[in-house]
């Protein structure tokens, strides 16, 4: 790719995601329609039918879906510099906003009005966390096995001092093991069917 075009594209990536970022309240999901619009319509970076694939990747890897989508598209267009430009574009505005709010808070946290406001806000934060649990619980817990995994994990979190990362690893491994058994079972029944058919 010609160098000037490449630089122009990098700036384009940076500013496109820069502009979307400040409206991404409440995590990434709210901004998906905006993102889709920006990368398929305004800029013809990704084909409409490919965006679903991009979102699957963005959801399956760690990190925020919005940031991951930006990184993926940036990489597809200009390689690693593109991935970096897109990622920086999407995290810079929110970074500036949070630093500004943090410094404001640190200056005013001893103000009595601010303190009483935050007593109320603490309840809202807990409600937000419960809400997040309900939302992910709907897709995560759908049968006996998944409910048991969730309950056991919760008991361990509450009563055993264990690093959460370890439990996440265990969860992933248990998921694979359970499905391996299922796969083997399926193979067995297929074989049994064959045997019966022959007989």
């Amino acid at each position: 790719m010609e160098k000037r075009r490449k630089v122009k594209l990098l700036w384009g990536l940076f500013f496109t995601f820069f502009k979307i970022s400040p409206v991404s309240f409440g995590g990434g999901y709210a901004m998906i329609p905006l993102l889709e619009d920006a990368v398929t319509k305004k800029n013809k970076w990704v084909k409409r039918e490919d965006i679903a694939d991009v979102l699957v990747v963005a959801q399956s890897v760690p990190g925020s879906i919005a940031v991951n989508t930006a990184t993926f598209i940036g990489y597809r267009l200009v390689g690693i510099p593109g991935a970096i430009a897109a990622t920086l574009g999407i995290i810079t505005p929110t970074f500036i906003i949070i630093v500004a709010l943090a410094s404001l808070f640190l200056n005013f946290q001893h103000n009595p009005i601010v303190q009483t406001a935050f007593i109320g806000i603490r309840s809202a934060v807990i409600a937000l966390i419960i809400f997040a649990a309900l939302k992910i619980g709907k897709t995560a817990i759908f049968n006996k096995t998944t409910s048991i995994i969730a309950c056991v994990a919760l008991v361990i979190f509450l009563f055993v001092s264990i690093h959460p990362i370890f439990m996440l690893l265990v969860g992933g491994i248990v998921g694979i093991l359970l499905n391996m058994k299922r796969l083997l079972d399926r193979k067995k029944t297929i074989n049994n069917d064959k045997v019966e058919n022959i007989q």
């Binding site: 649990a133 992910i136 817990i141 969730a150 439990m167 969860g171 694979i176 093991l177």
Partner: peptide
């Protein structure tokens, strides 16, 4: 297996 653990977390 991971999602139920995340929910519990």
């Amino acid at each position: 297996g991971l999602r139920p653990v995340i929910t519990a977390l």
